[in-house]
Write a protein that binds this DNA or RNA. Structure first.
Lengths: 162, 162
DNA sequence: TTATAAATGGGATAACATAGGATAGAGTGG
DNA sequence: CCACTCTATCCTATGTTATCCCATTTATAA
């Protein structure tokens, strides 16, 4: 499970270290022979990136496999999920090199922040991250009931927030 | 799993490099002795091409075996994918040469874009690709609920809205 | 402090995409 | 039946980019 917030440097070659904790998650749910790296895609919700391990992609694939092959929405999801995703392999030091267009999309410059979201994570500009965090906090304080921490029920979760 | 979007040049001889990532997928799920190349057919849905490895053809065959022999979808499926499909072998540099009629069908000229869709991929004109992607993105944003991205529960996710 | 792991920097190297000539095979016309 | 053309495949070459490898720094823990 991806947890916590880490800021690392993006070097001149476009490389950035993936936090060691995150790497541990990837390699633990990685059956031998699986891709050793992360999958990253531009968020549908705004100018930042989202990512996860290959296992997450398989979950998405399972969901899609259950859709009607001739459903119009199916191809739309296939394009957005698989077509936008990039496979970024770890180098020997646990770094990935971030494609330039993704960096531009997310406004990433010298520093990037990884934010764990459980099944997946976000990659964004540290400044934007701070802003988003404050907004999210404010929202929860206004509306504390939606997330019922500590109780089983939580029928309408929404926890995944994102 | 085929991921991401790559644009490569179609040269004067009708050759185009298949993205290295895609080739890796093919050779990884390729039992030794299998066909080293891609299978390409005109899409059922419009003027572009679809393709995959030989392994995908096997999957389709299994699917078809379980369909009603008189199902209309089945017949269309068989005719396009098996009937119209072409076997394009890699050359030493990982290129295939795209038959002229397929290029015409898909309106391919100097540049072609490969779009990963998980089990298969699309091959189309970069301009058309851009259009389709914008449409897909817009559609998913309007209707993110059909596919429960990011988690099991999330019946009315999107909570984090923003 | 010392030891261990993680993150960072940069030069060397290999992989990739692309171009073009050379060769072999299919099809056509004489 | 042979010569010719056209086309497809093979092979080598080259610029560009990514990745490999090693060295150094920073952080964490004993």
């Amino acid at each position: 499970m991806f947890l916590s917030r880490v800021t690392n440097a993006l070097d001149a070659k476009g490389r950035v270290s993936v936090p060691a904790d995150f790497r541990a998650v990837i390699s633990s749910d990685r059956a031998s022979g699986n891709f050793d790296g992360i999958i990253v895609w531009p968020s549908l919700s705004g100018p930042w990136l989202e990512g996860g391990g290959i296992a997450l992609m398989r979950e998405y694939q399972d969901l899609l496999d259950n859709m009607d092959p001739f459903d119009d929405d199916r191809i739309v999801f296939e394009r957005t999920i698989f077509g936008e995703g990039r496979r970024l392999a770890f180098d020997a030091n646990g770094r990935v090199s971030l494609p330039k267009d993704l960096a531009v999309y997310a406004g990433l410059d010298k520093q990037v922040t990884f934010v764990g979201l459980g099944r997946r994570f976000e990659i964004l500009n540290p400044k934007d991250c701070e802003t988003k965090f404050q907004q999210a906090r404010a929202k929860v304080q206004q509306n504390p009931h939606r997330l019922r921490l500590g109780g089983k029920p939580a029928s309408q979760d929404s926890a995944g927030s994102r």
